[in-house]
C-alpha cells in the first residue's frame, strides 16, 4: 500500500509533533512525505505533479494542526488548485483510494463535545473533509487525533508512534489486526536481531493469545447465534 502524507504546517521544522511523526514514519518504505509549506511557500501549486502523486497513492493523508477549526492555509490553497477543473474537464477517478486525516490539537480531545469548551465534536469540525472524500469517491476513515502532544508521557508517545505507523500502513483499526501487525513487526525485528530473545518471544505470545481470543470470540458468536457450541 502506497501512502502519500500531505502535510500542512507553516513551521514544520520547528514543530515537536511534526518532527515526532516524521521520525516515526522514517523507516516505512511505502510512505511518502509531502510538506506543502516547504514545497510551495508562495502557495503556487504544481497541479499536474500533485495529481500524478494522488494517482500513484492508495491512501492519501492530510496531516495538519487544527487552526481555528480548520487546516492551515497551504492545504486550502492546495485543494483549491488541485481540485479546480477547467470547463468540460473532469477530475480523475479516485475510486478505491482512501482519505485519512492526522490532526493535532492544542486543546484536550475531551473538550471537543457538546457542553464542553469547544462545544462541537471533531467529527463535526472535520466534516468538510468527509464531504470532500464523498465527492471524490474516496473512502473516508476515522481521523487520527493527536491532542496536546507536549503533555504526553513516554508510554503515550510510544503508543502514538505505533498508532501512527499502523494508520499509515494498514486500513484496519481493529484490536486483533493491531496485535497481528505488531507481532509481525517484532518478528521481522527478531529475524534481524536473533541475539534478542524478547522479540521472538513477545511476537509468539501475542500471536498465540490472539489465536486463543479469536477462538473464544467465535465460540461466543456461535452461542449467541444459537448454533453449536464449539
Amino acid at each position: 500500500m502506497q501512502t502519500l502524507v500531505i502535510v500542512a504546517h507553516p513551521d514544520f521544522d520547528n514543530s515537536g509533533t511534526q518532527n515526532f511523526l516524521r521520525a516515526s514514519s522514517a523507516h516505512l518504505p511505502q510512505v511518502q512525505y509531502h510538506v506543502l509549506d516547504q514545497l510551495y511557500p508562495d502557495y503556487q501549486v504544481d497541479v499536474a505533479r500533485e495529481r500524478q502523486l494522488l494517482q500513484a497513492a492508495d491512501q492519501i493523508i492530510f496531516q495538519f494542526p487544527l487552526y481555528w477549526y480548520s487546516a492551515p492555509a497551504s492545504l486550502k490553497a492546495w485543494l483549491d488548485q488541485v481540485l479546480q477543473t477547467a470547463q468540460e474537464e473532469r477530475l480523475p477517478d479516485y475510486q478505491g483510494k482512501t482519505l485519512g486525516l492526522v490532526v493535532s490539537t492544542g486543546v484536550a480531545a475531551a473538550q471537543f463535545t457538546a457542553g464542553r469548551s469547544e462545544q462541537f465534536t471533531l467529527s463535526e469540525i472535520l466534516r468538510p473533509y468527509q464531504a470532500l472524500a464523498h465527492k471524490l469517491h474516496l473512502t473516508y476513515r476515522a481521523p487520527l487525533i493527536i491532542s496536546q502532544f507536549s503533555h504526553t508521557n513516554d508510554l503515550q508517545k510510544a503508543q502514538l508512534l505505533v498508532q501512527y505507523q499502523q494508520y499509515l500502513t494498514s486500513f484496519s483499526d481493529h484490536f486483533a489486526d493491531q496485535v497481528r501487525w505488531l507481532a509481525q513487526r517484532l518478528q521481522d525485528l527478531a529475524a534481524q536481531n536473533p541475539e534478542e530473545p524478547a522479540l521472538a518471544a513477545v511476537a509468539a505470545t501475542l500471536t498465540a493469545n490472539q489465536d486463543h481470543l479469536d477462538d473464544l470470540n467465535q465460540t461466543i458468536a456461535m452461542m449467541k447465534g444459537g448454533g453449536p457450541i464449539g
Partner: peptide
Amino acid sequence: ENRALMQVAAELLKAQAQRLEQA
C-alpha cells in the same frame, strides 16, 4: 523505535489478558 514497539507490545499483552478473561 524498537523500544517503543516493545513498550506497546507489553501494553497489548495486558489488554489481551483482560480480554481473554472476559471472553
